[in-house]
């Protein structure tokens, strides 16, 4: 013990037992701190564990699937009928359904979303923006099953009035509804990207005589391109993973077609269809939903990584 501490102890009359008690208290406190930190760390690790478990479960059941089904059949066969006696396991029909519904969704969400975002970022008054943004959030919060109802019983009948030949189940109606569903995401991410464009660029453009519209189209949008494209990419990822709308309104028959007015099943709709039935654990039908899920997971993972990478890029430029 250093001399000064001894002196200090004598000066304020702290007995040795008291000092030991204080040291003991400090030790308990430090131990408690350590326990708490470890607990918090474990909680943070749950997301790592969840990600790894998702991968493990999908891969494990898919390995079982691919022991029965050759990979070449899976990728090239044009029929998907795992539940029939004459079973075919070609993912193409489900993939086509997913691509067509997502493409219809994007055809709605990209033009409407981009124009809305430009308007909100460059033209709208503060008050309008403050009212619209919560409304968009609400639009994004509506449960997807309600959108499914909307696609089947409101949008499709409306389309049938324009197009009397349209079947009750088709990919057009749900595709449009998916587009509306991903609008809030596309609008808010692309608006963020445009607002990140520094004011000086706009001022420079005004200074050489450009109107607001010219500035928006030729200065702000090009400068925010990577952020806007990131918004589209993350929108695609959402559209590809969308389940209830297509399960309810697109019909559940796998159908290899690029025509949006036909009914077809998507990857997600197939998983729902199988889950609603009662397939025994370990059967090929049971394994097939994990193989389909793996394809879906790889697709969304790729889009998400691409989207986040591009979003990061637009942040770093300025």
């Amino acid at each position: 013990m250093s001399k000064s501490i001894v002196m200090a102890r004598e000066a304020i009359h702290i007995s040795k037992p008291t000092i030991e008690k204080m040291a003991a208290r400090r030790r308990t406190r430090q131990r408690r701190e350590l326990v708490i930190e470890s607990g918090l760390f474990l909680a943070a690790l749950v997301s790592v564990a969840a990600t790894l478990t998702i991968l493990a479960v999908l891969l494990w059941e898919s390995v079982g699937f691919f022991e029965t089904v050759p990979l070449t059949d899976f990728l090239t066969d044009t029929l998907w009928t795992p539940l029939f006696d004459d079973a075919h396991y070609g993912i193409l029909p489900l993939l086509a359904g997913t691509v067509v519904t997502s493409a219809v969704g994007l055809l709605v969400a990209i033009p409407v979303g981009t124009v809305s975002a430009i308007y909100l970022s460059e033209f709208a008054s503060l008050r309008l923006r403050e009212t619209i943004k919560p409304a968009l959030e609400l639009l994004g919060a509506v449960p997807t099953v309600v959108y499914g109802y909307f696609a089947l019983l409101v949008v499709t009948p409306a389309l049938q009035r324009l197009w009397p030949d349209l079947p009750g189940f088709n990919m057009l109606g749900p595709g449009i509804v998916i587009g509306i569903m991903i609008l809030p995401l596309v609008i808010s991410l692309s608006e963020d990207a445009m607002r990140a464009v520094p004011m000086v660029l706009r001022e420079g453009s005004y200074a050489v005589g450009a109107t607001r519209l010219q500035t928006a189209w030729r200065v702000v949008v090009p400068a925010a391109t990577s952020g806007i494209v990131a918004a589209y990419v993350l929108g695609v990822s959402r559209a590809v993973g969308e389940t209830m709308v297509v399960a309810i309104a697109a019909g559940q028959n796998p159908n290899l077609t690029w025509n949006p007015t036909e009914p077809a099943a998507t990857i997600t709709a197939y998983i729902v269809q199988v889950a609603l039935g009662d397939l025994p654990h370990g059967s090929i039908g049971y394994q097939s939903i994990f193989a389909a899920g793996l394809v879906l997971a790889v697709m969304t993972f790729t889009f998400n990584m691409l989207g986040h990478f591009m979003r990061k890029r637009f942040r770093e430029v300025y």
Partner: peptide, 27 residues
């Protein structure tokens, strides 16, 4: 790693969580 997985989980379609639960919790 934790941060990447959180970002990634936020983008995983909800039906994949269903498959995780079916494989892990149910069976």
């Amino acid at each position: 790693l934790i941060e990447v997985t959180v970002t990634n989980l936020a983008g995983v379609p909800s039906i994949i969580f269903g498959l995780l639960a079916l494989g892990l919790f149910v069976y």
